[in-house]
């Protein structure tokens, strides 16, 4: 066993120490989970600036609420829950605006012969188009289905964890996952 592993404080230890006034314990939680929190925000929003803001906001809210954290779930699950909810709220409210922007960008690029990005050539274009269609289909998923898909398929969380995050039963989480994939199947049938 790695001797360093024994000295690493658990999340519960860190919460306890934070409650006793040790601010550095919170910093350790941030360092421990910042990448995962950022990743979830990025996967849901697809935008670095949004993900950055949401990840910071998640920890800011966690800091304010850590005193009252009841420990009914793990700290990790709790953070996933906060960032998922915040991200989905942002995506939902910005969805229309973002679509408009994408369309304007698309028009601008269509008229600009120098606007070539990413893989070059026909294969590259097809691949980009394919990725974009999948991304849009995922974006169009109903909120809870999208959250389930991201957490299960991309982040590898267990259904039990997802159920805790979403405040539902494991069976509901599984059903959401099933319906999310069924939705994608309908939307992407030409690609398959």
């Amino acid at each position: 066993m790695d001797p360093k592993a024994e000295t690493l404080p658990t999340d519960d230890d860190l919460v306890r120490r934070f409650r006793l006034g040790e601010e550095a314990a919170f910093d350790m939680l941030v360092l421990r989970y910042r990448k995962e929190v950022y990743r979830i925000a990025y996967r849901i929003t697809g935008d670095h600036a949004e993900a950055d803001d949401l990840a910071q906001e998640t920890f800011c809210r966690a800091y304010s609420a850590l005193d009252r954290f009841r420990g009914e779930s793990s700290v990790r699950t709790w953070l996933c829950r906060i960032v998922s909810n915040l991200s989905l709220n942002v995506v939902q409210s910005a969805r229309v605006a973002r679509r408009d922007e994408v369309e304007v960008e698309g028009l601008a690029q269509a008229g600009n012969p120098h606007a070539v990005a990413g893989p070059v050539g026909l294969d590259g274009l097809i691949r980009r188009e394919r990725h974009e269609r999948v991304r849009r289909a995922i974006e169009d998923l109903p909120r809870r289905q999208k959250m389930t898909l991201v957490l299960r398929a991309f982040e590898g969380l267990q259904y039990k964890e997802i159920a805790t995050i979403m405040g539902c039963t494991t069976g509901t989480a599984k059903a959401n996952f099933f319906h999310a994939v069924a939705f994608l199947k309908r939307e992407l049938k030409e690609l398959l």
């Binding site: 910093d27 941030v30 360092l31 910042r34 990448k35 950022y38 990743r39 990025y42 996967r43 670095h48 950055d52 990840a55 910071q56 394919r130 990725h131 999948v134 991304r135 995922i138 898909l149 398929a153 991309f154 994939v181 994608l184 199947k185 992407l188 690609l191 398959l192």
Partner: peptide, 25 residues
């Protein structure tokens, strides 16, 4: 469908870089 979704949207996301992570906390 799952594989396609994972390939397109679930692939590794771009790492913002060490400088970003240094500023995060």
């Amino acid at each position: 469908v799952l594989e396609e979704a994972s390939r397109c949207a679930g692939a590794d996301i771009p790492d913002p870089g060490e400088a970003y992570w240094d500023r995060f906390l």
